[in-house]
Amino acid sequence: MAERPDTPKTAASRYGLLFVISLYCIMPFVWLLTAAFDPGAGLFLEVPAKVDLSNFFRVFQEEDGLLWLMNSLIVCGGATLLVLVLSGFGGYALSRTHAWWKRPFLYAIILVRVIPPTALIVPLYKVMLTCNLAIAGVVRSVVPPDYVRSVMRFVGFIDGYLGLILLLATMHLPLALWIMKTFFDSVSREYEEAAIMDGATFGQRLRRVLLPLAMPGLAASGLFAFIAAWGDFLFPLTFISSPELKMLPLGIYSAFLRDSQIDYGLLAAIAVIYTAPAIIAFALARRFLVQTFGGGLKG
């Protein structure tokens, strides 16, 4: 709206309403931040008697905080990396092709985005189980029995990194493909043609011309994939059960469900550790949010 000075009454209601909305949005954070730095924190919001980092130390000393963090980073990092590669190549192909399958494929990836993951969870479990058995068969035939378990931890589909990485990457691939397709649509073909005239092979065009040009698009699709994978709760909940593969969201969830006295300071500290990367990624992704809306659904 055109900037017209507020009358005192309008100004009061404007800032008053904004204050109330902001309060609503920020209140829940107050407890989390207070509790994380309060060694004696409880479920209720209170002024801490003492403020220190002991909760954070305990996450890494008494609990397997480091393990959970590493597992989350491996799985989400792996999924993000996979999404970047697949969506980079796939988006390029989708943008440049005029083949008959282009339109049906684009429609399909929008429809895939609207399917609630919970609706797929049962058949997915069976697919993952089948894959896991197949992989286990292969692993057993090539690896000495003592090592099967530790190898399966990496390549297994149930209770293994590989399966979860593939699954999370697939779930967030449609949005990334869409972003990259739209992005490459805006990259003039003339850049590539100029490179062809300059004598660049496909490999050189990819590395020297397309990749640098695609960086903003890849940043957007990578950030969205990371945010979505990082925040996902359903898939780790369903497909991870062994403690050595536990990820941050499950660490929080199980610490919260503990029957004995819940250690809220510890819980809040884990939550802060888990939330920080998400907030940073979100802040970085913010400027892509609106452009992406056309094809993507909120994650």
Binding site: C25, P28, A35, L43, G231, Y264, A271, A278
Partner: peptide
Amino acid sequence: IILMPNAVPEVVAALMWAS
């Protein structure tokens, strides 16, 4: 501030609201 709740992972949001 208004965008922050959107950036928080689901489980953390649940935890904050539990309090």
